[in-house]
Design a protein around this nucleic acid. Sequence first.
DNA 1: GGTTTATTGTTATTATTTTATCAAAAAAAG
DNA 2: CTTTTTTTGATAAAATAATAACAATAAACC
Lengths: 209, 209
Amino acid sequence: MHRFSKKVSMTVVKRLPKYYQYLSDLQLNDIEKISSRELASLMGLTASQIRQDLNSFGGYGQQGYGYNVGELKEAIKEILVLDSEYNCIIIGGGNMGHAIANYERFKREGVILKGVFDVDPLTVGTVVGSVVVKHMDELDGFIESNEIDIAILCVPREVGQKVATQVTELGVKGILNFSPLDLDVPSDVVVENVNITDSLFTLTYLLGE
Amino acid sequence: MHRFSKKVSMTVVKRLPKYYQYLSDLQLNDIEKISSRELASLMGLTASQIRQDLNSFGGYGQQGYGYNVGELKEAIKEILVLDSEYNCIIIGGGNMGHAIANYERFKREGVILKGVFDVDPLTVGTVVGSVVVKHMDELDGFIESNEIDIAILCVPREVGQKVATQVTELGVKGILNFSPLDLDVPSDVVVENVNITDSLFTLTYLLGE
DNA sequence: GGTTTATTGTTATTATTTTATCAAAAAAAG
DNA sequence: CTTTTTTTGATAAAATAATAACAATAAACC
Protein backbone atom coordinates (compact mmCIF):
# COMPACT_ATOMS: atom_id res chain seq x y z
CA MET A 1 0.00 0.00 0.00
CA HIS A 2 2.72 2.47 0.96
CA ARG A 3 4.56 4.20 -1.82
CA PHE A 4 7.82 4.17 0.12
CA SER A 5 9.76 0.98 -0.10
CA LYS A 6 12.13 1.49 2.83
CA LYS A 7 10.40 0.48 6.00
CA VAL A 8 9.92 3.25 8.51
CA SER A 9 10.06 2.17 12.15
CA MET A 10 7.15 2.96 14.41
CA THR A 11 9.36 5.17 16.55
CA VAL A 12 10.01 7.35 13.54
CA VAL A 13 6.37 7.26 12.41
CA LYS A 14 5.33 8.60 15.80
CA ARG A 15 7.62 11.58 15.25
CA LEU A 16 6.47 12.29 11.70
CA PRO A 17 3.36 14.27 12.70
CA LYS A 18 5.62 16.57 14.68
CA TYR A 19 7.96 17.06 11.72
CA TYR A 20 4.91 17.71 9.60
CA GLN A 21 3.67 20.35 12.02
CA TYR A 22 7.00 22.16 12.21
CA LEU A 23 7.51 22.06 8.46
CA SER A 24 4.01 23.43 7.89
CA ASP A 25 4.76 26.28 10.27
CA LEU A 26 8.05 27.02 8.53
CA GLN A 27 6.29 27.07 5.19
CA LEU A 28 3.72 29.54 6.51
CA ASN A 29 6.61 31.78 7.49
CA ASP A 30 7.99 31.54 3.93
CA ILE A 31 11.08 29.65 5.00
CA GLU A 32 12.23 27.57 2.05
CA LYS A 33 15.13 25.60 3.41
CA ILE A 34 16.29 24.29 6.73
CA SER A 35 19.28 22.30 7.94
CA SER A 36 19.06 19.36 10.30
CA ARG A 37 20.85 21.46 12.89
CA GLU A 38 18.35 24.30 12.70
CA LEU A 39 15.39 21.95 12.76
CA ALA A 40 16.93 20.09 15.69
CA SER A 41 17.23 23.23 17.77
CA LEU A 42 13.67 24.16 16.86
CA MET A 43 12.19 20.79 17.74
CA GLY A 44 14.42 19.88 20.64
CA LEU A 45 15.97 16.86 18.95
CA THR A 46 19.51 16.11 17.83
CA ALA A 47 20.59 16.87 14.28
CA SER A 48 21.84 13.34 13.95
CA GLN A 49 18.49 11.89 14.88
CA ILE A 50 16.74 14.10 12.37
CA ARG A 51 19.04 13.00 9.59
CA GLN A 52 18.55 9.36 10.55
CA ASP A 53 14.79 9.80 10.73
CA LEU A 54 14.45 11.59 7.41
CA ASN A 55 16.83 9.22 5.73
CA SER A 56 14.78 6.22 6.74
CA PHE A 57 12.40 7.08 3.93
CA GLY A 58 14.53 8.77 1.32
CA GLY A 59 17.09 11.33 0.29
CA TYR A 60 15.23 14.58 0.62
CA GLY A 61 18.24 16.55 1.76
CA GLN A 62 21.11 17.97 -0.19
CA GLN A 63 24.66 18.26 1.07
CA GLY A 64 25.78 21.79 1.81
CA TYR A 65 22.21 23.03 1.48
CA GLY A 66 19.86 21.24 3.87
CA TYR A 67 16.26 20.27 3.26
CA ASN A 68 13.70 21.99 1.09
CA VAL A 69 10.84 22.70 3.47
CA GLY A 70 7.99 22.32 1.00
CA GLU A 71 9.38 19.19 -0.60
CA LEU A 72 10.05 17.47 2.70
CA LYS A 73 6.65 18.42 4.02
CA GLU A 74 4.96 16.90 0.99
CA ALA A 75 6.99 13.72 1.37
CA ILE A 76 5.92 13.33 4.99
CA LYS A 77 2.36 14.11 4.01
CA GLU A 78 2.48 11.20 1.61
CA ILE A 79 3.99 8.83 4.14
CA LEU A 80 1.28 9.70 6.63
CA VAL A 81 -1.18 9.18 3.76
CA LEU A 82 -2.58 12.66 4.29
CA ASP A 83 -2.89 13.08 0.55
CA SER A 84 -6.09 11.04 0.54
CA GLU A 85 -9.48 11.74 2.00
CA TYR A 86 -11.08 9.91 4.90
CA ASN A 87 -14.70 9.76 5.88
CA CYS A 88 -15.10 9.75 9.61
CA ILE A 89 -17.80 9.61 12.22
CA ILE A 90 -17.76 10.54 15.87
CA ILE A 91 -19.54 8.25 18.27
CA GLY A 92 -20.55 10.04 21.43
CA GLY A 93 -21.81 13.60 21.09
CA GLY A 94 -20.83 14.74 24.57
CA ASN A 95 -18.24 17.38 25.28
CA MET A 96 -15.34 15.32 24.00
CA GLY A 97 -17.10 14.41 20.77
CA HIS A 98 -18.14 18.01 20.42
CA ALA A 99 -14.59 19.22 20.92
CA ILE A 100 -13.22 16.88 18.25
CA ALA A 101 -16.01 17.78 15.83
CA ASN A 102 -14.85 21.37 15.98
CA TYR A 103 -11.22 20.60 15.18
CA GLU A 104 -10.82 22.54 11.94
CA ARG A 105 -7.49 20.88 11.39
CA PHE A 106 -9.05 17.49 10.71
CA LYS A 107 -11.00 18.72 7.71
CA ARG A 108 -8.02 20.70 6.45
CA GLU A 109 -6.01 17.47 6.29
CA GLY A 110 -8.73 15.55 4.48
CA VAL A 111 -10.51 13.90 7.38
CA ILE A 112 -14.15 14.69 6.69
CA LEU A 113 -16.74 14.48 9.43
CA LYS A 114 -19.76 12.69 8.02
CA GLY A 115 -21.79 12.10 11.15
CA VAL A 116 -22.04 12.22 14.92
CA PHE A 117 -23.98 9.60 16.87
CA ASP A 118 -25.32 9.46 20.40
CA VAL A 119 -27.90 7.59 22.46
CA ASP A 120 -29.05 10.56 24.51
CA PRO A 121 -32.39 11.89 23.18
CA LEU A 122 -31.38 15.38 24.33
CA THR A 123 -28.23 15.28 22.23
CA VAL A 124 -29.78 13.69 19.14
CA GLY A 125 -30.95 16.41 16.77
CA THR A 126 -28.55 19.08 18.02
CA VAL A 127 -25.85 20.42 15.72
CA VAL A 128 -22.30 19.35 16.47
CA GLY A 129 -19.55 20.64 14.23
CA SER A 130 -21.07 20.64 10.78
CA VAL A 131 -23.60 17.88 11.27
CA VAL A 132 -26.80 17.04 13.09
CA VAL A 133 -26.40 14.35 15.74
CA LYS A 134 -28.12 11.08 14.84
CA HIS A 135 -29.32 8.32 17.11
CA MET A 136 -27.14 5.24 17.46
CA ASP A 137 -29.98 3.21 15.94
CA GLU A 138 -29.10 4.78 12.61
CA LEU A 139 -25.40 3.89 12.86
CA ASP A 140 -25.45 0.59 10.97
CA GLY A 141 -27.20 1.91 7.89
CA PHE A 142 -25.16 5.08 7.90
CA ILE A 143 -21.78 3.37 7.94
CA GLU A 144 -22.83 1.00 5.18
CA SER A 145 -24.01 3.75 2.86
CA ASN A 146 -21.25 6.30 3.55
CA GLU A 147 -17.99 4.35 3.28
CA ILE A 148 -16.75 5.35 6.70
CA ASP A 149 -13.01 4.85 7.15
CA ILE A 150 -12.50 6.14 10.66
CA ALA A 151 -14.64 6.03 13.79
CA ILE A 152 -13.73 8.38 16.61
CA LEU A 153 -14.90 6.86 19.88
CA CYS A 154 -15.87 9.35 22.58
CA VAL A 155 -18.11 7.05 24.59
CA PRO A 156 -17.91 5.93 28.22
CA ARG A 157 -15.64 3.06 29.13
CA GLU A 158 -18.60 0.75 29.75
CA VAL A 159 -19.76 0.79 26.14
CA GLY A 160 -16.42 1.28 24.37
CA GLN A 161 -15.85 -2.36 23.45
CA LYS A 162 -19.44 -2.85 22.33
CA VAL A 163 -19.27 0.13 19.99
CA ALA A 164 -15.85 -0.88 18.68
CA THR A 165 -17.14 -4.34 17.83
CA GLN A 166 -20.18 -2.84 16.14
CA VAL A 167 -18.24 -0.47 13.88
CA THR A 168 -15.58 -3.01 12.92
CA GLU A 169 -18.28 -5.49 11.95
CA LEU A 170 -19.65 -2.81 9.64
CA GLY A 171 -16.28 -2.42 7.95
CA VAL A 172 -14.63 0.50 9.70
CA LYS A 173 -10.86 -0.08 9.58
CA GLY A 174 -9.56 2.69 11.81
CA ILE A 175 -10.49 3.79 15.31
CA LEU A 176 -9.33 6.86 17.18
CA ASN A 177 -10.17 5.84 20.70
CA PHE A 178 -10.79 8.36 23.46
CA SER A 179 -12.57 5.84 25.68
CA PRO A 180 -10.27 4.82 28.50
CA LEU A 181 -9.99 1.14 27.74
CA ASP A 182 -8.01 -1.09 25.41
CA LEU A 183 -10.09 -2.29 22.50
CA ASP A 184 -10.13 -5.78 21.15
CA VAL A 185 -10.46 -5.56 17.38
CA PRO A 186 -9.80 -7.79 14.35
CA SER A 187 -6.21 -7.77 13.13
CA ASP A 188 -7.00 -5.75 10.01
CA VAL A 189 -8.35 -2.88 12.11
CA VAL A 190 -6.01 -0.26 13.52
CA VAL A 191 -6.59 1.60 16.75
CA GLU A 192 -4.88 4.70 18.05
CA ASN A 193 -5.54 5.41 21.70
CA VAL A 194 -5.72 8.82 23.31
CA ASN A 195 -5.74 8.00 27.00
CA ILE A 196 -6.04 11.20 28.98
CA THR A 197 -5.90 9.52 32.36
CA ASP A 198 -2.63 7.84 31.42
CA SER A 199 -1.22 11.21 30.43
CA LEU A 200 -2.30 12.73 33.74
CA PHE A 201 -0.61 9.92 35.65
CA THR A 202 2.60 10.39 33.71
CA LEU A 203 2.42 14.03 34.72
CA THR A 204 1.98 13.26 38.42
CA TYR A 205 5.00 10.97 38.18
CA LEU A 206 7.08 13.73 36.59
CA LEU A 207 5.89 16.20 39.23
CA GLY A 208 7.23 13.90 41.93
CA GLU A 209 10.69 13.51 40.41
CA MET B 1 11.55 13.13 46.08
CA HIS B 2 10.71 9.59 44.95
CA ARG B 3 10.51 6.90 47.58
CA PHE B 4 11.92 4.30 45.24
CA SER B 5 15.68 4.25 44.99
CA LYS B 6 16.04 2.21 41.81
CA LYS B 7 15.58 4.44 38.85
CA VAL B 8 12.61 3.64 36.63
CA SER B 9 13.14 4.36 32.95
CA MET B 10 10.69 6.63 31.16
CA THR B 11 9.65 3.75 28.91
CA VAL B 12 8.49 1.85 31.97
CA VAL B 13 6.88 4.90 33.57
CA LYS B 14 4.77 5.35 30.45
CA ARG B 15 3.47 1.82 30.91
CA LEU B 16 2.74 2.16 34.63
CA PRO B 17 -0.65 3.88 34.20
CA LYS B 18 -1.74 0.92 32.13
CA TYR B 19 -0.59 -1.56 34.77
CA TYR B 20 -2.40 0.55 37.32
CA GLN B 21 -5.60 0.42 35.30
CA TYR B 22 -5.50 -3.33 34.79
CA LEU B 23 -4.66 -4.01 38.43
CA SER B 24 -7.51 -1.76 39.56
CA ASP B 25 -9.88 -3.68 37.32
CA LEU B 26 -8.64 -7.01 38.65
CA GLN B 27 -9.12 -5.79 42.19
CA LEU B 28 -12.69 -4.76 41.42
CA ASN B 29 -13.26 -8.31 40.23
CA ASP B 30 -11.90 -9.64 43.53
CA ILE B 31 -8.88 -11.22 41.95
CA GLU B 32 -6.13 -11.34 44.55
CA LYS B 33 -3.16 -12.71 42.68
CA ILE B 34 -1.90 -12.77 39.13
CA SER B 35 1.13 -14.20 37.38
CA SER B 36 3.23 -12.33 34.86
CA ARG B 37 1.99 -14.74 32.24
CA GLU B 38 -1.67 -14.08 32.95
CA LEU B 39 -1.17 -10.34 33.11
CA ALA B 40 0.79 -10.48 29.87
CA SER B 41 -2.01 -12.19 28.01
CA LEU B 42 -4.48 -9.71 29.47
CA MET B 43 -2.45 -6.63 28.54
CA GLY B 44 -0.94 -7.82 25.31
CA LEU B 45 2.64 -7.73 26.52
CA THR B 46 5.20 -10.47 27.10
CA ALA B 47 5.57 -12.02 30.54
CA SER B 48 9.27 -11.31 30.43
CA GLN B 49 8.69 -7.63 29.85
CA ILE B 50 6.25 -7.46 32.73
CA ARG B 51 8.72 -9.09 35.09
CA GLN B 52 11.46 -6.71 33.95
CA ASP B 53 9.17 -3.72 34.30
CA LEU B 54 7.91 -4.61 37.76
CA ASN B 55 11.35 -5.55 38.91
CA SER B 56 12.76 -2.17 38.00
CA PHE B 57 11.18 -0.83 41.17
CA GLY B 58 11.23 -3.73 43.56
CA GLY B 59 10.41 -7.30 44.42
CA TYR B 60 6.65 -7.33 44.58
CA GLY B 61 6.33 -10.82 43.20
CA GLN B 62 6.82 -14.16 44.84
CA GLN B 63 8.17 -17.26 43.17
CA GLY B 64 5.62 -19.97 42.58
CA TYR B 65 2.82 -17.58 43.45
CA GLY B 66 2.86 -14.48 41.27
CA TYR B 67 1.96 -10.95 42.26
CA ASN B 68 -0.50 -9.80 44.87
CA VAL B 69 -2.86 -7.55 42.96
CA GLY B 70 -3.64 -5.09 45.76
CA GLU B 71 -0.06 -4.78 46.92
CA LEU B 72 1.30 -4.23 43.43
CA LYS B 73 -1.40 -1.71 42.65
CA GLU B 74 -0.54 0.28 45.77
CA ALA B 75 3.15 0.21 44.87
CA ILE B 76 2.47 1.61 41.41
CA LYS B 77 0.12 4.16 42.91
CA GLU B 78 2.99 5.38 45.05
CA ILE B 79 5.44 5.51 42.17
CA LEU B 80 3.01 7.56 40.14
CA VAL B 81 2.59 9.70 43.27
CA LEU B 82 -1.15 9.14 43.18
CA ASP B 83 -1.16 8.92 46.96
CA SER B 84 -1.02 12.70 47.23
CA GLU B 85 -3.53 15.35 46.29
CA TYR B 86 -3.16 17.86 43.50
CA ASN B 87 -4.98 21.12 42.98
CA CYS B 88 -5.66 21.74 39.34
CA ILE B 89 -7.25 24.31 37.11
CA ILE B 90 -8.50 24.08 33.57
CA ILE B 91 -7.75 26.94 31.27
CA GLY B 92 -10.20 27.13 28.41
CA GLY B 93 -13.83 26.34 29.16
CA GLY B 94 -14.78 25.19 25.68
CA ASN B 95 -15.83 21.67 24.84
CA MET B 96 -12.45 20.16 25.58
CA GLY B 97 -12.13 21.90 28.94
CA HIS B 98 -15.69 20.90 29.69
CA ALA B 99 -14.99 17.28 28.83
CA ILE B 100 -11.96 17.12 31.11
CA ALA B 101 -13.81 18.86 33.93
CA ASN B 102 -16.32 16.03 33.92
CA TYR B 103 -13.74 13.25 34.16
CA GLU B 104 -14.76 11.68 37.46
CA ARG B 105 -11.58 9.64 37.44
CA PHE B 106 -9.40 12.67 38.05
CA LYS B 107 -11.02 13.47 41.39
CA ARG B 108 -11.03 9.82 42.38
CA GLU B 109 -7.26 9.76 42.03
CA GLY B 110 -6.73 12.94 44.03
CA VAL B 111 -6.61 15.52 41.26
CA ILE B 112 -9.01 18.17 42.49
CA LEU B 113 -10.51 20.69 40.10
CA LYS B 114 -10.28 24.10 41.76
CA GLY B 115 -11.25 26.37 38.90
CA VAL B 116 -11.96 26.80 35.20
CA PHE B 117 -10.97 29.94 33.32
CA ASP B 118 -11.98 31.43 30.01
CA VAL B 119 -11.95 34.75 28.18
CA ASP B 120 -15.33 34.36 26.51
CA PRO B 121 -17.98 36.44 28.37
CA LEU B 122 -20.59 33.88 27.35
CA THR B 123 -18.67 31.07 29.03
CA VAL B 124 -17.67 32.99 32.14
CA GLY B 125 -20.27 32.40 34.85
CA THR B 126 -21.50 29.07 33.50
CA VAL B 127 -20.99 25.92 35.52
CA VAL B 128 -18.38 23.48 34.24
CA GLY B 129 -17.82 20.29 36.18
CA SER B 130 -18.13 21.32 39.80
CA VAL B 131 -17.09 24.95 39.44
CA VAL B 132 -18.23 28.26 37.99
CA VAL B 133 -16.07 29.49 35.12
CA LYS B 134 -14.04 32.57 36.01
CA HIS B 135 -12.59 35.19 33.70
CA MET B 136 -8.90 34.94 32.83
CA ASP B 137 -8.40 38.29 34.55
CA GLU B 138 -8.85 36.50 37.85
CA LEU B 139 -6.26 33.82 37.06
CA ASP B 140 -3.22 35.41 38.69
CA GLY B 141 -4.82 36.01 42.06
CA PHE B 142 -6.51 32.62 42.02
CA ILE B 143 -3.35 30.61 41.43
CA GLU B 144 -1.51 32.55 44.10
CA SER B 145 -4.14 31.95 46.76
CA ASN B 146 -5.00 28.34 45.89
CA GLU B 147 -1.65 26.54 45.58
CA ILE B 148 -2.35 25.20 42.13
CA ASP B 149 -0.09 22.30 41.14
CA ILE B 150 -1.41 21.46 37.71
CA ALA B 151 -2.80 23.59 34.88
CA ILE B 152 -4.72 21.79 32.16
CA LEU B 153 -4.46 23.81 28.96
CA CYS B 154 -7.42 23.58 26.60
CA VAL B 155 -6.84 26.82 24.74
CA PRO B 156 -6.27 27.51 21.03
CA ARG B 157 -2.79 27.12 19.63
CA GLU B 158 -2.41 30.88 19.23
CA VAL B 159 -2.53 31.58 22.97
CA GLY B 160 -1.05 28.35 24.31
CA GLN B 161 2.47 29.66 24.87
CA LYS B 162 1.24 32.88 26.41
CA VAL B 163 -0.92 31.04 28.92
CA ALA B 164 1.85 28.54 29.69
CA THR B 165 4.26 31.37 30.45
CA GLN B 166 1.67 33.05 32.61
CA VAL B 167 0.92 30.01 34.79
CA THR B 168 4.55 28.98 35.20
CA GLU B 169 5.43 32.48 36.33
CA LEU B 170 2.76 32.10 38.98
CA GLY B 171 4.36 28.90 40.24
CA VAL B 172 2.47 26.10 38.51
CA LYS B 173 4.88 23.18 38.09
CA GLY B 174 2.88 20.82 35.92
CA ILE B 175 0.99 21.30 32.66
CA LEU B 176 -1.29 18.86 30.90
CA ASN B 177 -1.30 20.38 27.44
CA PHE B 178 -4.13 19.81 24.99
CA SER B 179 -3.18 22.80 22.84
CA PRO B 180 -1.52 21.56 19.66
CA LEU B 181 1.88 23.17 20.11
CA ASP B 182 5.09 22.46 21.99
CA LEU B 183 5.43 24.64 25.04
CA ASP B 184 8.58 26.37 26.12
CA VAL B 185 8.71 26.26 29.92
CA PRO B 186 11.35 26.62 32.66
CA SER B 187 13.32 23.45 33.40
CA ASP B 188 11.60 22.85 36.72
CA VAL B 189 8.20 22.68 35.06
CA VAL B 190 6.95 19.43 33.55
CA VAL B 191 4.64 19.21 30.55
CA GLU B 192 2.69 16.25 29.28
CA ASN B 193 1.27 16.73 25.81
CA VAL B 194 -1.94 15.26 24.49
CA ASN B 195 -1.76 15.97 20.80
CA ILE B 196 -4.89 14.72 19.13
CA THR B 197 -3.85 15.72 15.64
CA ASP B 198 -0.64 13.73 16.01
CA SER B 199 -2.68 10.70 17.05
CA LEU B 200 -4.97 11.09 14.05
CA PHE B 201 -1.96 11.23 11.73
CA THR B 202 -0.49 8.11 13.26
CA LEU B 203 -3.82 6.47 12.55
CA THR B 204 -3.88 7.52 8.89
CA TYR B 205 -0.37 6.08 8.57
CA LEU B 206 -1.48 2.78 10.06
CA LEU B 207 -4.53 2.73 7.80
CA GLY B 208 -2.24 2.98 4.80
CA GLU B 209 0.02 0.11 5.81
C1' DG C 1 38.14 28.10 -11.25
C1' DG C 2 39.95 26.84 -6.92
C1' DT C 3 39.36 26.94 -1.98
C1' DT C 4 36.70 27.06 1.97
C1' DT C 5 32.53 26.16 4.36
C1' DA C 6 28.26 23.90 5.20
C1' DT C 7 25.66 19.98 5.43
C1' DT C 8 24.00 15.67 4.08
C1' DG C 9 23.89 10.36 3.91
C1' DT C 10 26.06 6.62 5.77
C1' DT C 11 28.56 3.87 8.74
C1' DA C 12 30.15 2.91 13.36
C1' DT C 13 29.45 3.17 18.20
C1' DT C 14 26.95 3.42 22.23
C1' DA C 15 22.82 3.16 24.89
C1' DT C 16 18.43 1.42 25.70
C1' DT C 17 14.78 -1.83 25.37
C1' DT C 18 12.96 -6.23 24.66
C1' DT C 19 13.14 -11.06 24.72
C1' DA C 20 15.04 -15.48 26.20
C1' DT C 21 17.02 -18.42 29.60
C1' DC C 22 17.48 -20.54 33.89
C1' DA C 23 18.65 -21.18 38.79
C1' DA C 24 16.30 -20.48 43.07
C1' DA C 25 12.28 -20.14 45.80
C1' DA C 26 7.79 -21.04 46.99
C1' DA C 27 3.57 -23.53 46.57
C1' DA C 28 1.02 -27.65 45.41
C1' DA C 29 0.63 -32.43 45.08
C1' DG C 30 1.28 -36.91 46.48
C1' DC D 1 8.10 -35.07 54.11
C1' DT D 2 9.60 -35.47 49.50
C1' DT D 3 8.78 -34.57 44.72
C1' DT D 4 6.81 -31.95 41.16
C1' DT D 5 5.08 -27.78 39.39
C1' DT D 6 4.85 -22.96 39.13
C1' DT D 7 6.74 -18.73 38.81
C1' DT D 8 9.74 -15.18 40.05
C1' DG D 9 14.24 -12.33 39.83
C1' DA D 10 18.31 -12.02 37.63
C1' DT D 11 21.40 -12.54 34.01
C1' DA D 12 22.42 -13.06 29.19
C1' DA D 13 21.38 -12.32 24.43
C1' DA D 14 19.17 -10.04 20.74
C1' DA D 15 16.94 -6.24 18.76
C1' DT D 16 16.13 -1.54 18.37
C1' DA D 17 17.12 3.29 18.87
C1' DA D 18 20.06 7.26 19.56
C1' DT D 19 24.33 9.49 19.05
C1' DA D 20 28.79 10.30 17.04
C1' DA D 21 31.95 10.51 13.32
C1' DC D 22 33.25 11.42 8.84
C1' DA D 23 33.74 11.01 3.77
C1' DA D 24 31.34 12.91 -0.05
C1' DT D 25 29.07 16.53 -2.18
C1' DA D 26 27.17 20.85 -3.03
C1' DA D 27 27.13 25.73 -2.27
C1' DA D 28 29.40 30.09 -1.22
C1' DC D 29 33.18 32.88 -1.52
C1' DC D 30 37.23 34.97 -3.28
